[in-house]
Nucleic acid binder design. Structure first.
Length: 593
RNA sequence: GGCGGGGUAGCUCAGGUGGAAGAGCAGGGGACUCAUAAGCCCUUGGUCGUGGGUUCAAGUCCCACCCCCGCCA
C-alpha cells in the first residue's frame, strides 16, 4: 500500500539569496521527508519554484537599470544551482513566471469569483506621476503624523513604532526617486475571508490532534481573537499575473495570492513535463492524498489559514473552469509542519547587514552533507535555534567524522585488507551478532516513525545513536584480536558490522544522501540509492524558464533491512568526511557583519 | 494591547497521553589499537524562570507573575 504524498515547499522570493536559516526552515526538511517516502515506495512529488513577481523585484530592477525578468532569472538560477549542489531533489522546481502558472492562478481567481467570495472596493493610494505607477505603502516616505519624524515609511514609523495610514503621511515622497506623489482613487478585488471563517475553523479543528501546536494555536488563536476579514488580492502593478477581468488592465494579482497557487500549478507543470498531463490529479483531486507544506513560521498564516481558505473558496469551480470536470474539489493541506527560525551566533540573520551564512558561499568551501547534518540536528522544530560556527566544527568532527565516518572507515578498511576486497563469509552468526543486528534493524521502525511525524532531529539522533551502538559492539568483539587466533570469528564480526553499516546507510540517506551514495558504492552496490537531479529549459509563450527536475529511473534504495551479499566484492574505501580545524570557526565568524 | 513560542547541568539541547531528572560536548580517571589520535568503559555536575494550586505522585496539568523572541492591530 503506497500513499500519494504532495510535498509542498515554500517558494523562495526572487529578490535575495538563500541562507542557512531558509534552508533549515523549509527546503531541507522537505527534502529529507521526501527522500524517506521515496525509499518507502510511496508516490511522492516535491514541488516548488521561485516567487518571481511583486514590487521588490521591480524596484530592484529599476535600481540596477535592468528588467524584472532579468532580476528574477538571476536569483532563480542561483536557487537551482544551490538546490542541486545541496541535493534538494525537487521533482519540479519551477517559477511563478510561466504561462501555466498564469492560467492556473487566473482559474483560481475566477472560481472564487463564481462562488461569490470576491468583492471590489475603492480606496485612495499614492500615485507617482513621474514613474507612472501607484506606490506600495513601503515605498512612500514622509513625516509621521504621530511624532513628526521626517523619515517615516508609509506602513510604519521607525521612530515611534506606530503603524501608519500611508495616505495621511505629511510631505510624502517616493522612496525611489524622491518625487512627490499624489492621491488617486483605485479599485481592487478582495477575497471575503470573513465568509470563509467557519470553514477554516472546521479545517483547523479537524487537524488539531496532529498539527504542531505553534502552527495550530497561532492560527486558531488569531482567528478567535480577531476574526478573519477581507483581504486585497490585486494591486496596481504590471509585473505579475494580469487580473482576468475586462477593464482591469494594468492591475495584477497580489503575490501572496498567486504564489501559493504554485503548489497546484507546479504539480500540473510536472505532470505535463512527464508526458502524463492528468497525473497531477492523483495529488490534487484525490481526497486521500496528503499534502505536507514545509514553510518557515513567517508563512504560517498564509499556509494554515489563507491558502486553505482559497482552496475551500474555489469549491468545485476550479475543476469546471480549468479542466471541464464536474464534482471535483482540490485537496486541502494535511499538515503544515512549519519551523521556527534559526539565528546566527546569537543574533537574528540579516541579509542587509551581511549577518548570514549563504548557502552557495558555504558550499564553495564545505561539503553538502555536513551542512545537512548540522542544520537537521539544529533544526528549529519547536523553537528558535542558533547557528554557531564552533558548534558546527565540533559536531562535524565529533559525530560525522568520529562516530559515523570512523565506524565506516574502520570496518570497511579492515574488511578490505583482510578479505581481499570482499565481504567476508560469516557462516552461522553468534547470539551477540544477532543482537546488534536486531537493534539496527529496529531503526527502520524508530527512525521512520520520527520522520513520518516530521520529527527530524530525533530521527537523525536515533540513527547516529545506533551507529554508536555498532562501535560498542566492535569494541566488545574486537575483530583485530580475533583475527590473530581465529579468522572465522573475525569474519562473523566484520560481516555483522558491515551489514549494520549497510542498513545505517539507508537510515541516514535521507539526511546524508551524498556520503550514503558513496558508501553504497564502497559496499559493492552498482545501483544508486536515489535518482538524479537535472536541469532543463522549458519554453512557453512568456519565454523560457529553467527548471530543476528529478529522474528516479535508477534509484534502488529501499527503507528495509536488505541482505548484504556475503562474498561480494567491495570498492576500496576512503573516509566519508573531512575533519575541520577549529580555526575555521574563527575565520568564518570574521566574515560576518 | 491581542495571539503565539521559549525559559531544564558550564555550553547546545531531549524530555508525545503526569510515576524514582536525560543526551552530546566541555572537565576528571581507565583499558585498548582495527580506524581521519578516531572508538570503548567509568566519573564530576541540575532547588527543571518565580510564587501558588490540583494530585498518592508535576519539568510534565491549572492560576498569577517575571524575563527573552515572533506574529497581528
Amino acid at each position: 500500500m503506497s500513499d500519494n504524498i504532495l510535498v509542498a515547499v515554500a517558494w523562495p522570493y526572487a529578490n535575495s539569496r538563500i541562507h542557512v536559516g531558509n534552508i533549515t526552515g523549509s527546503y531541507l526538511p522537505a527534502d529529507i521527508f521526501t527522500r524517506y517516502h521515496r525509499l518507502l515506495g510511496d508516490q511522492v512529488i516535491m514541488v516548488s519554484g521561485s516567487d518571481a513577481h511583486g514590487t521588490p523585484v521591480t524596484v530592484r530592477a529599476d535600481a540596477e537599470g535592468s528588467t524584472p525578468v532579468q532580476v528574477y532569472e538571476k536569483f532563480h538560477n542561483g536557487f537551482i544551482e544551490l538546490f542541486q549542489k545541496l541535493g534538494l531533489a525537487y521533482d519540479l522546481f519551477t517559477s511563478t513566471h510561466t504561462k501555466n502558472h498564469f492560467e492556473v492562478s487566473q482559474a483560481i481567481f475566477l472560481a472564487l469569483q463564481k462562488n461569490g467570495y470576491l468583492y471590489t472596493e475603492k480606496q485612495k493610494q499614492w500615485y507617482a506621476p513621474a514613474q507612472r505607477r501607484f506606490l506600495p505603502d513601503r515605498y512612500v516616505e514622509g513625516t509621521c503624523y504621530f511624532c513628526g519624524y521626517t523619515e517615516a515609511r508609509g506602513d510604519q514609523c521607525d521612530n515611534c513604532g506606530n503603524l501608519l495610514d500611508a495616505t495621511q503621511l505629511i510631505d510624502p515622497r517616493s522612496k525611489t526617486d524622491g518625487s512627490t506623489p499624489e492621491l488617486r482613487e483605485t479599485e481592487h478585488f478582495y477575497v471575503d475571508l470573513g465568509a470563509l471563517e467557519p470553514s477554516i475553523v472546521d479545517f483547523l479543528r479537524q487537524r488539531e490532534s496532529y498539527w504542531r501546536s505553534n502552527v495550530l494555536r497561532q492560527s486558531l488563536g488569531q482567528i478567535m481573537s480577531k476574526g478573519l476579514h477581507g483581504r486585497a488580492i490585486t494591486r496596481d502593478l504590471d509585473w505579475g499575473i494580469p487580473v482576468p477581468v475586462e477593464g482591469w488592465d494594468g492591475k495584477c494579482l497580489y503575490v501572496w495570492f498567486e504564489a501559493v497557487i504554485g503548489y497546484v500549478s507546479a504539480a500540473i507543470e510536472w505532470a505535463k513535463l512527464g508526458g502524463q498531463p492528468e497525473a497531477w490529479e492523483k495529488w490534487w483531486t484525490n481526497p486521500d492524498a496528503k499534502g505536507y507544506y514545509f514553510i518557515g513560521k513567517d508563512n504560517i498564516p498564509f499556509h494554515a489559514v489563507i491558502w486553505p481558505a482559497q482552496l475551500i473558496g474555489v469549491g468545485e469551480w476550479f475543476g469546471k473552469i480549468y479542466s471541464n470536470e464536474d464534482g471535483v474539489k482540490l485537496t486541502l493541506p494535511y499538515d503544515v509542519p512549519a519551523n521556527e527560525f534559526m539565528n546566527l551566533e546569537g543574533q537574528k540573520i540579516s541579509g542587509s547587514r551581511n549577518w548570514a551564512v549563504w548557502g552557495l558561499d558555504f558550499l564553495s568551501r564545505y561539503d553538502p552533507d555536513p551542512l545537512r547534518y548540522y542544520l537537521t540536528v539544529n533544526m528549529p522544530e519547536s523553537k528558535d535555534t542558533d547557528w554557531d560556527w564552533d558548534d558546527f566544527v565540533r559536531r562535524n568532527n565529533d559525530v560525522l567524522v568520529a562516530t559515523w565516518g570512523n565506524l565506516v572507515n574502520r570496518v570497511l578498511s579492515f574488511a578490505y585488507k583482510h578479505w581481499d576486497g570482499c565481504v567476508p563469509e560469516p557462516g552461522e552468526l553468534r547470539p551477540d551478532d544477532k543482537v546488534i543486528l536486531e537493534s539496527v534493524a529496529a531503526g527502520f521502525e524508530s527512525v521512520g516513525e520520527h520522520i513520518d511525524a516530521v520529527r527530524l532531529r530525533p530521527a537523525l539522533n536515533e540513527a547516529v545513536r545506533l551507529a554508536s551502538e555498532v562501535n560498542k559492539y566492535l569494541d566488545t568483539s574486537a575483530p583485530w584480536f580475533e583475527i590473530k587466533s581465529d579468522k572465522e570469528h573475525a569474519a562473523k564480526t566484520i560481516f555483522t558490522a558491515l551489514q549494520a553499516i549497510d542498513w545505517l546507510k539507508v537510515q541516514l540517506s535521507p539526511f546524508l544522501p551524498f556520503t550514503s551514495e558513496r558508501l553504497n558504492l564502497y559496499l559493492g552496490y552498482k545501483q544508486p540509492l536515489f535518482g538524479e537531479q537535472y536541469v532543463e529549459t522549458v519554453e512557453d509563450s512568456l519565454g523560457k524558464h529553467t527548471v530543476l527536475r528529478y529522474n528516479s529511473a535508477d534509484a534502488s534504495g529501499k527503507w528495509e533491512p536488505g541482505c548484504l551479499p556475503a562474498g561480494g566484492s567491495m570498492e576500496k574505501p576512503a573516509p566519508l568526511f573531512r575533519k575541520l580545524e577549529p580555526i575555521v570557526a574563527q575565520e568564518e565568524r570574521a566574515k560576518l557583519g
